[in-house]
Design a protein around this nucleic acid. Structure first.
Lengths: 191, 191, 191, 191
DNA sequence: AATGAATGAGCGTTCATTCAT
DNA sequence: TATGAATGAACGCTCATTCAT
């Protein structure tokens, strides 16, 4: 919770603990958790190596703390739905992803998810929240009786998948996917 | 050197080189490349550690070889399209993913893509092929003039994303997505 | 970090870094750099192996540091020349070899010179300095006009060669050469 | 004894055993015995690795054989002495070094001498023979009664040292020493 | 709170050597 | 005689972690 508004990139300011987390965020995102030695975090953070272990007794604690403090899945936030405009409603939701996290933190979240439980849990909650919200938005936006529950669920899950995966996809394949267009496609399928 | 039909799981048979690749496939999928020591591969393959390096001079060669020999992106394969049935056409395409690879290999492909170029390239080709084929299938299946190029592209990319990501998603969140339902949704959006 | 006066032999005292260098000096001189594992240095120095690499990130750094800190080519030192006594002048020079280094360090210097640049450079400088000084001493000691430049140069180079090589020769062949006698011989040849 | 006249350099012809020795000679001279893996010898010799150990059960046998078969200290060969011309006599002796060995073999002889007994012995014999012959030549060339035994010995040893060391010196320091000039200097000192 | 020396387990890799064929 | 798979000991090096100060 220490980070204020916005994301600081590669700027090593603040107290030692913050600088350590900043450095780790950058390095984990770039090279992965396993491939990042604690000594490198210390060097980038410009603190003595011992201090890293003073604040975070085990290296894994740095990752856990990062996920804990720097990714925030915002649950139960309001959904802005415009009845009769499911596409626009989804688009707006896309723009307000309920994940407060820097791009670096997002990469970490996805990359380390399958080897570290606490990371996986966070990602799982995010996905659940996204689907929940998309479903709810569609319910509000669609003319009543239009979508049976199962169809809505599929639409919500598909949209969530695209939102979560698009960044990875762009990174790995260079292929950009436009959430707005997807929103329109999905909305078209429901009407 | 190619694997025959089907996938062998955790069965340690065949010559040493094959057993090493089998073991690595399993371990890389489970724990990730970085977190898997060569010694563990050797132990699971039931060969002395030295033999691993006899066949694969550097550890990374094991990963590269795995991707090389055990993931096969089938390009230019025929697409079975049924005019007037875009949903069914996509469903059939989903069932014939142009990636010959065990589930384990797929996880490796996705997990290691952002730190190892050769893996990333393979994944990128796969994604491209998948989109290309989905687009082509839709062109054939849709009534002419129905879909303008951009809409088709979005539909294809969305479907590809779902196909590629669904496995990871299930793994990470427990939430299962049904490609057939997505096919129907997308087809509905296009008609 | 410089060694004080005199040489300590095989006495394992002082801080860990010093003990490591002491041990390496002894072992490199005895068995050669390549044939001396870092573990053996650690054992002789009575430190854990990891500590060797704490102070010297690569093994070669131990050798380089040794040459750097424990061989000192003293340039521009005064030459004590006695006019009319070239033999005595050379003898005195021999006794004040401009190389501050233990016998062990000298063996290392010669043995590793042809495979390690930094060592070779040090040895080269030493040889140059030795010749320069011998020439200068002879110029002062000889009656003017006696020796033309070329002859002086040869005498200086010969004497330098004998000084540098005698130790190796004794080691390898058991045959001892007496620098004083050589000085006399050379002086005789110039007069 | 297998080598005919002259030295073949880097030409891999002849039977396997010869090619192995050729390769080893080149590699040992360049990188030293310890730093040359048997596999590299095999590769350069263009023979399978197993064959190296077929001919030479242990790696050290390659070195020993090399020294054994490819360095020949010619003892008891005639000395051409010209009475009254000690300088010329020494010069001639320098030109007929009693060591039949390629430059590469000489480098090996000197470099490995202090860690391998058999090599050291060979070098020792060479030095002894050189001194013996220089002493004998000087005895014959000098006017009788001129040189007492001790002086002759010093002269002979000095000349031998220069001859043996000159190659190393040139290599390590770039400083060339001219044996003829040294011969003259020494002869001058004896007359 | 801060530090860097110390520790040791374990990693990737090398390589002499063996051996079945 | 010829071969390359197999073996295992040891090597250089890394690194999380501890600890005295």
């Amino acid at each position: 919770m220490r980070r204020p508004e916005g994301y600081r990139h590669a700027v090593r300011i603040g107290d030692a603990r913050t600088r350590i987390l900043d450095a780790a965020e950058e390095l984990f995102a770039t090279s992965g958790y396993e491939a990042t030695p604690a000594s490198m975090i210390a060097k980038l953070a410009n603190v003595p190596k011992g201090l890293v272990f003073h604040y975070f007794p085990r290296k894994i604690d740095v990752l856990v703390t990062l996920v804990d403090e720097r990714t925030l899945v915002e649950e139960d936030r309001d959904v802005e739905a415009v009845p009769g405009d499911p596409a626009g409603t989804l688009s707006r939701l896309a723009r307000r992803l309920p994940l407060r996290a820097s791009p670096a933190m997002r990469r970490i979240l996805f990359r380390e998810a399958d080897t570290h439980v606490s990371v996986r849990e966070r990602l799982s909650r995010l996905n659940g929240e996204l689907i929940r919200r998309a479903r709810f938005a569609l319910e509000l936006a669609l003319p009543t009786a239009r979508g049976d529950a199962a169809r809505l669920e599929v639409a919500a899950a598909t949209f969530a998948a695209v939102l979560l995966y698009q960044e990875t996809l762009t990174q790995l394949t260079g292929h950009r996917i436009d959430p707005d267009a997807v929103a329109e496609l999905i909305a078209g399928g429901l009407l």
